[in-house]
Design a protein around this nucleic acid. Structure first.
Length: 378
DNA sequence: GCTATTTGACCATG
DNA sequence: CATGGTCAAATAGC
Protein backbone atom coordinates (compact mmCIF):
# COMPACT_ATOMS: atom_id res chain seq x y z
CA UNK A 1 0.00 0.00 0.00
CA UNK A 2 1.35 3.36 0.74
CA UNK A 3 4.25 2.54 -1.38
CA UNK A 4 4.85 5.98 -2.55
CA UNK A 5 4.57 7.14 0.93
CA UNK A 6 7.29 4.88 2.00
CA UNK A 7 9.36 5.88 -0.91
CA UNK A 8 8.97 9.47 -0.02
CA UNK A 9 10.01 8.80 3.48
CA UNK A 10 13.02 7.02 2.26
CA UNK A 11 13.83 9.93 0.12
CA UNK A 12 13.35 12.24 2.99
CA UNK A 13 15.61 10.10 5.02
CA UNK A 14 18.18 10.19 2.33
CA UNK A 15 17.94 13.91 2.10
CA UNK A 16 18.34 14.30 5.79
CA UNK A 17 21.36 12.10 5.70
CA UNK A 18 22.88 14.09 2.92
CA UNK A 19 22.08 17.25 4.71
CA UNK A 20 23.75 15.97 7.77
CA UNK A 21 26.77 15.00 5.78
CA UNK A 22 26.96 18.51 4.57
CA UNK A 23 26.82 19.80 8.09
CA UNK A 24 29.53 17.45 9.12
CA UNK A 25 31.72 18.59 6.32
CA UNK A 26 31.16 22.14 7.40
CA UNK A 27 32.07 21.29 10.93
CA UNK A 28 35.14 19.53 9.79
CA UNK A 29 36.16 22.48 7.77
CA UNK A 30 35.65 24.73 10.75
CA UNK A 31 37.72 22.46 12.88
CA UNK A 32 40.54 22.46 10.45
CA UNK A 33 40.35 26.14 10.10
CA UNK A 34 40.75 26.72 13.76
CA UNK A 35 42.78 23.88 15.06
CA UNK A 36 42.89 23.18 18.70
CA UNK A 37 44.40 20.42 20.68
CA UNK A 38 41.29 18.42 20.27
CA UNK A 39 40.99 19.01 16.60
CA UNK A 40 42.33 15.67 15.65
CA UNK A 41 39.95 13.78 17.76
CA UNK A 42 37.02 15.80 16.73
CA UNK A 43 37.98 15.55 13.15
CA UNK A 44 38.24 11.86 13.38
CA UNK A 45 34.87 11.71 14.92
CA UNK A 46 33.44 13.79 12.19
CA UNK A 47 35.08 11.72 9.56
CA UNK A 48 33.71 8.63 11.13
CA UNK A 49 30.29 10.08 11.04
CA UNK A 50 30.78 11.16 7.52
CA UNK A 51 31.65 7.69 6.53
CA UNK A 52 28.75 6.35 8.40
CA UNK A 53 26.28 8.74 6.97
CA UNK A 54 27.66 8.37 3.53
CA UNK A 55 27.30 4.70 3.67
CA UNK A 56 23.89 5.13 5.03
CA UNK A 57 22.96 7.38 2.21
CA UNK A 58 24.28 5.02 -0.36
CA UNK A 59 22.35 2.31 1.19
CA UNK A 60 19.21 4.34 1.24
CA UNK A 61 19.68 5.29 -2.33
CA UNK A 62 20.12 1.73 -3.33
CA UNK A 63 17.34 0.40 -1.30
CA UNK A 64 15.01 2.96 -2.68
CA UNK A 65 15.91 2.08 -6.14
CA UNK A 66 17.53 5.37 -6.86
CA UNK A 67 20.42 3.53 -8.20
CA UNK A 68 20.07 1.35 -11.17
CA UNK A 69 20.67 -1.57 -8.97
CA UNK A 70 18.24 -1.54 -6.30
CA UNK A 71 20.54 -2.79 -3.74
CA UNK A 72 23.93 -3.20 -4.99
CA UNK A 73 26.23 -3.47 -2.11
CA UNK A 74 29.28 -1.41 -2.34
CA UNK A 75 31.22 -4.54 -2.17
CA UNK A 76 29.19 -7.36 -3.37
CA UNK A 77 30.88 -10.07 -1.60
CA UNK A 78 28.33 -12.51 -0.84
CA UNK A 79 25.68 -11.45 -3.11
CA UNK A 80 27.83 -11.93 -6.05
CA UNK A 81 25.03 -13.76 -7.51
CA UNK A 82 22.42 -11.25 -6.87
CA UNK A 83 20.41 -13.25 -9.17
CA UNK A 84 16.96 -12.31 -10.10
CA UNK A 85 15.89 -15.07 -7.91
CA UNK A 86 17.14 -13.25 -4.94
CA UNK A 87 13.72 -12.60 -3.81
CA UNK A 88 14.82 -12.50 -0.29
CA UNK A 89 17.26 -9.78 -0.58
CA UNK A 90 14.71 -7.76 -2.31
CA UNK A 91 12.03 -8.35 0.10
CA UNK A 92 14.33 -7.96 2.96
CA UNK A 93 15.23 -4.58 1.76
CA UNK A 94 12.07 -3.73 0.17
CA UNK A 95 11.62 -0.14 0.36
CA UNK A 96 8.29 0.33 -1.11
CA UNK A 97 7.43 -2.49 -3.29
CA UNK A 98 6.23 -5.11 -1.03
CA UNK A 99 2.93 -5.51 -2.61
CA UNK A 100 4.01 -8.60 -4.33
CA UNK A 101 4.66 -10.24 -1.08
CA UNK A 102 1.83 -12.51 -1.54
CA UNK A 103 3.27 -13.90 -4.64
CA UNK A 104 6.68 -14.67 -3.34
CA UNK A 105 5.95 -15.44 0.16
CA UNK A 106 7.43 -18.79 0.28
CA UNK A 107 10.22 -18.35 -2.03
CA UNK A 108 11.29 -15.28 -0.33
CA UNK A 109 11.99 -16.67 2.98
CA UNK A 110 14.33 -19.39 2.13
CA UNK A 111 16.62 -17.20 0.29
CA UNK A 112 19.68 -16.21 2.04
CA UNK A 113 19.52 -12.78 3.28
CA UNK A 114 21.81 -10.15 2.12
CA UNK A 115 21.09 -7.87 4.95
CA UNK A 116 23.98 -6.14 6.51
CA UNK A 117 25.69 -8.18 9.10
CA UNK A 118 28.03 -7.61 11.89
CA UNK A 119 29.44 -9.87 14.37
CA UNK A 120 29.76 -9.76 18.05
CA UNK A 121 31.42 -11.95 20.50
CA UNK A 122 29.67 -12.29 23.73
CA UNK A 123 31.27 -13.76 26.70
CA UNK A 124 29.24 -15.36 29.36
CA UNK A 125 30.30 -15.95 32.86
CA UNK A 126 32.68 -18.78 33.26
CA UNK A 127 30.35 -20.26 35.72
CA UNK A 128 28.33 -21.30 32.84
CA UNK A 129 26.21 -18.35 33.42
CA UNK A 130 23.49 -18.53 31.04
CA UNK A 131 22.26 -15.29 32.17
CA UNK A 132 22.29 -12.01 30.69
CA UNK A 133 25.02 -11.69 28.25
CA UNK A 134 22.98 -12.51 25.31
CA UNK A 135 20.25 -10.26 26.23
CA UNK A 136 20.92 -7.49 23.87
CA UNK A 137 17.84 -5.58 24.61
CA UNK A 138 15.71 -7.09 21.94
CA UNK A 139 13.33 -9.92 21.93
CA UNK A 140 14.41 -12.80 19.82
CA UNK A 141 12.65 -15.88 18.77
CA UNK A 142 14.48 -18.95 17.77
CA UNK A 143 13.48 -20.33 14.45
CA UNK A 144 16.13 -22.84 13.75
CA UNK A 145 19.26 -24.61 14.72
CA UNK A 146 21.86 -26.15 12.57
CA UNK A 147 24.94 -28.17 13.03
CA UNK A 148 27.74 -26.41 11.36
CA UNK A 149 30.44 -28.28 9.66
CA UNK A 150 33.59 -28.27 11.67
CA UNK A 151 31.97 -26.72 14.62
CA UNK A 152 31.45 -28.51 17.82
CA UNK A 153 28.33 -26.70 18.60
CA UNK A 154 25.28 -26.02 16.55
CA UNK A 155 24.31 -22.60 15.48
CA UNK A 156 21.08 -21.11 16.59
CA UNK A 157 19.03 -18.89 14.38
CA UNK A 158 16.96 -16.16 15.88
CA UNK A 159 14.72 -13.53 14.52
CA UNK A 160 13.02 -10.62 16.06
CA UNK A 161 9.95 -11.51 17.98
CA UNK A 162 8.14 -8.71 16.25
CA UNK A 163 8.90 -9.93 12.83
CA UNK A 164 5.35 -10.67 12.08
CA UNK A 165 3.67 -7.95 13.96
CA UNK A 166 5.98 -5.19 12.93
CA UNK A 167 7.85 -6.59 10.07
CA UNK A 168 11.13 -6.30 11.82
CA UNK A 169 13.68 -8.17 9.78
CA UNK A 170 16.44 -8.33 12.30
CA UNK A 171 17.92 -11.73 12.82
CA UNK A 172 20.89 -13.11 14.57
CA UNK A 173 22.87 -16.27 14.65
CA UNK A 174 24.40 -17.45 17.81
CA UNK A 175 27.10 -19.97 18.14
CA UNK A 176 29.37 -21.02 20.90
CA UNK A 177 32.98 -20.89 20.05
CA UNK A 178 35.01 -23.98 20.16
CA UNK A 179 37.94 -22.35 21.69
CA UNK A 180 36.21 -20.80 24.54
CA UNK A 181 32.92 -22.18 25.69
CA UNK A 182 32.18 -19.01 27.46
CA UNK A 183 32.37 -17.00 24.33
CA UNK A 184 29.63 -16.88 21.82
CA UNK A 185 29.69 -15.56 18.39
CA UNK A 186 26.67 -13.58 17.58
CA UNK A 187 26.05 -12.50 14.08
CA UNK A 188 23.46 -9.84 13.73
CA UNK A 189 21.76 -9.33 10.50
CA UNK A 190 19.55 -6.45 9.67
CA UNK A 191 18.42 -3.85 12.04
CA UNK A 192 15.43 -3.66 14.22
CA UNK A 193 12.60 -1.69 12.87
CA UNK A 194 10.39 -2.79 15.63
CA UNK A 195 9.23 -0.86 18.55
CA UNK A 196 10.14 -3.24 21.19
CA UNK A 197 7.45 -2.72 23.68
CA UNK A 198 8.62 -5.26 26.10
CA UNK A 199 11.89 -3.65 26.16
CA UNK A 200 11.64 -0.70 28.37
CA UNK A 201 15.19 0.11 27.98
CA UNK A 202 15.36 3.40 26.33
CA UNK A 203 16.88 3.63 23.00
CA UNK A 204 17.22 0.02 22.31
CA UNK A 205 15.75 0.70 18.98
CA UNK A 206 17.25 3.96 18.53
CA UNK A 207 18.67 3.36 15.23
CA UNK A 208 16.54 0.76 13.79
CA UNK A 209 16.14 2.67 10.70
CA UNK A 210 18.22 2.10 7.80
CA UNK A 211 17.39 -0.86 5.89
CA UNK A 212 14.01 -2.17 6.41
CA UNK A 213 11.65 0.55 6.25
CA UNK A 214 8.39 -0.89 7.08
CA UNK A 215 4.85 -0.04 7.10
CA UNK A 216 3.72 2.80 9.07
CA UNK A 217 6.77 3.30 11.10
CA UNK A 218 8.12 5.36 8.39
CA UNK A 219 7.37 8.62 9.88
CA UNK A 220 8.62 7.69 13.21
CA UNK A 221 11.65 6.23 11.76
CA UNK A 222 12.25 9.21 9.73
CA UNK A 223 11.96 11.45 12.63
CA UNK A 224 14.04 9.27 14.76
CA UNK A 225 16.73 9.18 12.25
CA UNK A 226 16.75 12.86 11.89
CA UNK A 227 16.79 13.45 15.53
CA UNK A 228 19.51 11.01 15.97
CA UNK A 229 21.48 12.58 13.25
CA UNK A 230 21.26 15.91 14.81
CA UNK A 231 22.46 14.48 18.04
CA UNK A 232 25.20 12.35 16.80
CA UNK A 233 27.70 14.96 17.44
CA UNK A 234 26.55 15.55 20.90
CA UNK A 235 26.48 11.93 21.61
CA UNK A 236 29.91 11.51 20.41
CA UNK A 237 31.15 14.33 22.44
CA UNK A 238 29.46 13.15 25.52
CA UNK A 239 30.76 9.74 24.90
CA UNK A 240 34.20 10.98 24.65
CA UNK A 241 33.74 12.63 27.92
CA UNK A 242 32.30 9.67 29.64
CA UNK A 243 33.95 6.72 28.14
CA UNK A 244 37.10 5.22 29.31
CA UNK A 245 38.83 3.22 26.75
CA UNK A 246 41.46 0.81 27.56
CA UNK A 247 43.51 -0.61 24.86
CA UNK A 248 44.81 -3.93 25.71
CA UNK A 249 48.05 -5.03 24.52
CA UNK A 250 49.01 -2.31 22.33
CA UNK A 251 50.25 1.04 22.63
CA UNK A 252 48.60 3.54 20.52
CA UNK A 253 51.85 4.54 19.19
CA UNK A 254 52.66 1.31 17.62
CA UNK A 255 49.68 1.18 15.48
CA UNK A 256 50.43 2.77 12.33
CA UNK A 257 48.03 0.88 10.30
CA UNK A 258 44.45 0.26 10.44
CA UNK A 259 45.09 -3.30 10.34
CA UNK A 260 47.20 -3.19 13.35
CA UNK A 261 44.55 -1.32 15.07
CA UNK A 262 42.05 -3.80 14.12
CA UNK A 263 44.08 -6.34 15.81
CA UNK A 264 44.07 -4.54 18.97
CA UNK A 265 41.50 -5.27 21.31
CA UNK A 266 39.93 -2.36 22.85
CA UNK A 267 37.63 -2.34 25.66
CA UNK A 268 35.32 0.36 26.65
CA UNK A 269 34.45 0.92 30.16
CA UNK A 270 31.32 2.75 30.68
CA UNK A 271 30.55 4.67 33.72
CA UNK A 272 28.90 2.79 36.44
CA UNK A 273 25.66 4.34 35.56
CA UNK A 274 24.17 2.38 32.81
CA UNK A 275 24.68 4.38 29.78
CA UNK A 276 21.75 5.06 27.68
CA UNK A 277 21.54 2.65 24.96
CA UNK A 278 20.95 5.50 22.72
CA UNK A 279 24.40 6.57 23.38
CA UNK A 280 25.73 3.26 22.82
CA UNK A 281 23.90 3.00 19.65
CA UNK A 282 25.14 6.26 18.50
CA UNK A 283 28.56 5.37 19.35
CA UNK A 284 28.16 2.24 17.46
CA UNK A 285 26.83 4.25 14.70
CA UNK A 286 29.92 6.20 14.69
CA UNK A 287 31.97 3.18 14.84
CA UNK A 288 30.27 1.27 12.25
CA UNK A 289 30.32 2.53 8.83
CA UNK A 290 27.11 0.87 8.23
CA UNK A 291 25.50 3.70 9.95
CA UNK A 292 22.26 2.42 11.07
CA UNK A 293 23.24 -1.13 11.40
CA UNK A 294 24.21 -1.56 14.82
CA UNK A 295 24.02 -4.37 17.11
CA UNK A 296 22.08 -3.69 20.11
CA UNK A 297 24.99 -3.54 22.34
CA UNK A 298 22.92 -1.79 24.72
CA UNK A 299 22.89 -4.76 26.71
CA UNK A 300 20.94 -2.63 28.81
CA UNK A 301 19.38 -5.11 31.01
CA UNK A 302 19.88 -2.93 33.90
CA UNK A 303 23.15 -4.44 34.45
CA UNK A 304 25.90 -2.22 35.35
CA UNK A 305 28.36 -4.76 34.37
CA UNK A 306 26.92 -4.91 31.01
CA UNK A 307 28.16 -1.52 30.35
CA UNK A 308 31.30 -2.94 29.22
CA UNK A 309 32.25 -4.29 25.97
CA UNK A 310 35.33 -4.68 24.07
CA UNK A 311 36.19 -4.53 20.51
CA UNK A 312 38.65 -6.98 19.40
CA UNK A 313 38.34 -7.39 15.75
CA UNK A 314 41.41 -9.39 15.61
CA UNK A 315 39.58 -12.13 17.23
CA UNK A 316 37.91 -12.40 14.00
CA UNK A 317 40.87 -13.72 12.39
CA UNK A 318 39.09 -14.56 9.30
CA UNK A 319 37.98 -11.14 8.58
CA UNK A 320 36.35 -11.39 5.35
CA UNK A 321 38.19 -14.22 4.00
CA UNK A 322 35.86 -16.84 4.90
CA UNK A 323 32.66 -18.04 3.89
CA UNK A 324 30.28 -16.49 1.65
CA UNK A 325 31.71 -13.15 1.92
CA UNK A 326 30.95 -12.68 5.45
CA UNK A 327 34.42 -13.09 6.36
CA UNK A 328 33.79 -14.61 9.62
CA UNK A 329 36.05 -17.25 10.52
CA UNK A 330 33.87 -20.13 11.16
CA UNK A 331 33.87 -20.19 14.74
CA UNK A 332 32.58 -23.38 15.87
CA UNK A 333 30.14 -22.82 18.39
CA UNK A 334 26.76 -23.25 19.57
CA UNK A 335 24.82 -21.25 21.73
CA UNK A 336 21.69 -22.86 21.77
CA UNK A 337 21.39 -24.08 25.20
CA UNK A 338 22.55 -20.89 26.56
CA UNK A 339 20.33 -18.93 24.39
CA UNK A 340 17.41 -21.06 25.07
CA UNK A 341 17.93 -20.58 28.69
CA UNK A 342 18.45 -16.98 28.07
CA UNK A 343 15.31 -16.49 26.30
CA UNK A 344 13.63 -17.65 29.37
CA UNK A 345 15.59 -15.33 31.49
CA UNK A 346 16.30 -12.45 29.33
CA UNK A 347 15.73 -10.07 32.06
CA UNK A 348 18.38 -11.32 34.28
CA UNK A 349 20.57 -8.60 35.39
CA UNK A 350 23.87 -10.08 36.05
CA UNK A 351 25.06 -9.98 32.62
CA UNK A 352 28.69 -9.57 32.49
CA UNK A 353 28.51 -8.34 29.07
CA UNK A 354 31.29 -9.93 27.38
CA UNK A 355 33.23 -8.97 24.44
CA UNK A 356 31.49 -7.64 21.55
CA UNK A 357 33.39 -7.62 18.43
CA UNK A 358 31.67 -5.84 15.75
CA UNK A 359 32.64 -6.85 12.36
CA UNK A 360 31.07 -5.37 9.45
CA UNK A 361 29.85 -7.31 6.74
CA UNK A 362 31.45 -6.33 3.62
CA UNK A 363 28.07 -6.45 2.27
CA UNK A 364 27.44 -2.86 2.57
CA UNK A 365 30.70 -1.28 2.69
CA UNK A 366 34.02 -1.56 1.25
CA UNK A 367 37.03 -2.46 3.14
CA UNK A 368 38.20 1.05 3.02
CA UNK A 369 35.44 1.79 5.33
CA UNK A 370 37.43 0.36 8.05
CA UNK A 371 37.67 2.99 10.57
CA UNK A 372 40.35 3.50 12.98
CA UNK A 373 38.16 3.00 15.89
CA UNK A 374 40.91 2.86 18.35
CA UNK A 375 41.54 6.46 18.02
CA UNK A 376 38.08 7.72 18.37
CA UNK A 377 38.19 7.82 22.03
CA UNK A 378 41.27 8.44 23.85
C1' DG B 1 -5.03 -22.04 24.75
C1' DC B 2 -1.25 -19.40 23.57
C1' DT B 3 3.49 -18.78 22.76
C1' DA B 4 8.10 -20.36 22.24
C1' DT B 5 11.26 -24.06 21.03
C1' DT B 6 12.73 -28.16 18.63
C1' DT B 7 13.73 -30.51 14.63
C1' DG B 8 13.43 -32.58 10.09
C1' DA B 9 12.78 -31.07 5.51
C1' DC B 10 13.23 -27.87 1.92
C1' DC B 11 15.78 -24.80 -0.86
C1' DA B 12 19.42 -21.39 -2.29
C1' DT B 13 24.11 -20.84 -2.80
C1' DG B 14 28.79 -21.85 -3.99
C1' DC C 1 26.72 -32.02 -4.27
C1' DA C 2 27.71 -30.14 0.31
C1' DT C 3 26.59 -26.71 3.25
C1' DG C 4 24.00 -23.28 5.45
C1' DG C 5 19.59 -20.67 6.19
C1' DT C 6 14.70 -20.93 6.68
C1' DC C 7 10.19 -22.99 7.13
C1' DA C 8 6.68 -25.23 9.49
C1' DA C 9 4.73 -29.14 12.00
C1' DA C 10 5.23 -31.15 16.34
C1' DT C 11 6.16 -30.50 20.96
C1' DA C 12 6.85 -28.26 25.44
C1' DG C 13 6.07 -24.77 28.82
C1' DC C 14 3.38 -21.30 31.00
Amino acid sequence: MENTDTGENQSMLLLSELSFIQQLATQLEAQLREPSNSTIEISKSIVAQLLSKTENSIFLANSCGLGSNRREPTSPLRSASASPASGMSQSAFRCHDDNDDNNNKREVSKKRKTLPKWRSQVKVGSTGGVEGPLDDGHSWRKYGQKDILGAKHPRGYYRCTYRNSQGCQATKQVQRTDDNPTVFDVIYQGTHTCINKSNTRPGSNISCTTNNNNNNNNNNINNKQMVQSSHDQDYLNSLKATLTIKTKGLGPSGLGQQEAQHCNSMSFSFPSTPIESGHVATMADNYFPSGGFLPSFANSSATSESNYFSLSPCVISGYDTGVGGFGLRKVDSDLTEVVSALSATTSTTNSPMGDIDPVFDELDFDTHFQIDTSSFFS
